[in-house]
Design a protein around this nucleic acid. Sequence first.
DNA 1: TGATAAGTGTTGCTTAAGCAACAAAATTAA
DNA 2: TTAATTTTGTTGCTTAAGCAACACTTATCA
Lengths: 189, 189
Amino acid sequence: MQEIVENKDIRKIRTRKYIIDAFFELLKKKSFETIRISDITTKAMVNRATFYNHFADKYELFEVVTKEIIMENVRNQLAETTNFCQNTLTNVFVALTNYHNELYALCSYSYDEMASINETILRKEVEQVLFESLKLKYSEKSKQEIQNMASIFSWMLYGAAYEWKNQNELDPVAYFAQTMGSIESILNE
Amino acid sequence: MQEIVENKDIRKIRTRKYIIDAFFELLKKKSFETIRISDITTKAMVNRATFYNHFADKYELFEVVTKEIIMENVRNQLAETTNFCQNTLTNVFVALTNYHNELYALCSYSYDEMASINETILRKEVEQVLFESLKLKYSEKSKQEIQNMASIFSWMLYGAAYEWKNQNELDPVAYFAQTMGSIESILNE
DNA sequence: TGATAAGTGTTGCTTAAGCAACAAAATTAA
DNA sequence: TTAATTTTGTTGCTTAAGCAACACTTATCA
């Protein structure tokens, strides 16, 4: 319970920042797997033991950082669509393409690796948001049913954004409209 | 005596670096006099009290930093001329023009102010180096006489470099050769 | 294979840095 | 000018971070 002491001491904030900065700096040049804790701490000019006061390991560092820095962006865009509507899926999709672009900008060298690590985390986030949104709209449906819808949508959107990144030719909105149009026409056959 | 403990602890090195970096960052935008200690510490993300563990005040900060970063350069170039010779004056002059260029690059906004603050420090440094050099060459002369020569030369060279910066048209070596040529011809009239 | 090395994660003790509060200059405003 | 405000420099106590040493796991390569 004592756990949430919150950063009042500037040293914690500063050290954290420098670790994160150093980490992303390194991600521009080498792959996630080849980055050692000591690489990070050396660049950040902190003791290796200090790293462990902030993060359990480099996986947690990346997870936490991604959630904070990148997903905050996604969340903000998702927040626009409190109630589920036709545009919700498009908005979420656009948010996800932004996420991919930002991630790529942050760690171009190890983008695929990073995207892969984040996949589950991010997809779950999306699922959660969609669940909340769907719940409001379809209050008559069972929780399980809504959960299933949210899950399928999250997979679909995450996957679509990932594929979009690999092609990266069309504007996200156009890409999504086109693809969804095709899917709908097939489902309605 | 315990004073020279030397930096083994990375915190001291790191904090020092961040204070110095923040200081020069600020010098690019505002004048030395308008920079508050708290401006520096805020930017450096350290406590204000910590500043005073490293420096007595911002004047000492600047003095120490200048000596370390900029004058090291000057010293290196001066080191080439251990024994006083015809080229010594030219070398020192060139070193001083480099110093002015570097100082300007570091704090363009407040260059004049900074150059003025450093004047005495730098001139004394030059005087000291010239004194050592002259002493070797003219061991028959009295210490006082050598001291006087070194002093006059230091004023001359410092002033010449300062004037050169204000004109900044000719190549340093050409400027110095030309000016010294004129002076010599007058002295020999 | 077995051994040498390199990286990880943890711990007890030490030290630099943070914080808050203060008096004393120095600015600014009335 | 005087009063209000801001900045400076200092201090006692607290806390985060450094250090060094450790056991342990994971490469490296002879």
